[in-house]
Design a binder for these strands. Structure first.
Length: 213
DNA sequence: TAGTACCG
DNA sequence: GCTG
């Protein structure tokens, strides 16, 4: 363990590689407010299973908040200022989201993180996300901040190439992973989710903060 | 290849 | 049958 009790009881920071850090339990105190704001966002921009360029629907349901949102369809991946399902702008990023992301980035060594996009992923038992890179952003100077809420999941933490065998890291309610700098384009994914109970019911939410533009 | 199916 |  890198810094036991850096944030208080039962929480810890663990470096995953240069530029990347797991902040165990960092978001746990904020989780009730984050989940409440998540409900407000999804009321205006419902979760939906997007289709990949290959034509297959994703098992993970997604929505966004912020000035742009990550979307995929048969034409490819992109950031869009409008929700293609409603034609409306994505809901504004809640202050609770923005502040948590900024604090987590700072603790991990990235000052002044001001995300313009939050991709919200909803996993149900059986959902998974295969190995990929976050590389649709216009520049890679800013880090990625990833917040886990609800059911635990096995995070697949790979390397700079798809051929690197991923580490398997268990992520729990309130955990935050931050990666940037030399780790910014790390391949990552999520193994098939198992069932169970959690503060968010029988599902897992992931909030991924990016500077897309 | 942010996807599934299939083989060994 | 289960995993990779």
């Amino acid at each position: 363990m890198f810094a036991p009790d850096l944030f208080g009881e039962g929480r810890h920071a663990m470096p995953l590689r240069p530029g990347a850090m797991l902040l165990g339990g960092f978001a746990a105190p904020d989780a009730p407010a984050l989940l409440e704001d998540l409900r407000r966002v999804e009321a205006r921009a419902p979760f939906r299973n997007m289709v990949t360029p290959g034509g297959w629907p994703m098992s993970v349901a997604m929505t966004n908040c912020g000035s742009v949102g990550w979307v995929t369809d048969r034409t490819g991946y992109r950031y869009d200022p409008l929700d293609p399902q409603t034609g409306e702008p994505w809901p504004a990023m809640p202050e609770t989201f923005r502040r948590l992301a900024g604090r987590a980035a700072e603790v991990a060594g990235y000052r002044g993180f001001e995300p313009d996009s939050c991709l919200m992923n909803r996993y149900e038992p059986g959902s998974r996300l295969s190995l990929h890179q976050d590389r649709n952003e216009l520049d890679f100077d800013a880090p990625i901040v990833s917040v886990s809420l609800g059911l635990p999941a096995t995070f697949l933490w790979g390397g700079a190439t798809r051929a690197d065998r991923p580490m398997r890291i268990r992520l729990f309610h309130g955990d935050v992973v931050v990666w940037g700098g030399p780790a910014r384009l790390t391949f990552h994914g999520v193994d098939t989710l198992s069932g169970g109970e959690s503060p968010a019911g029988e599902r897992r939410y992931n909030l991924t903060f990016r500077v897309a533009r």
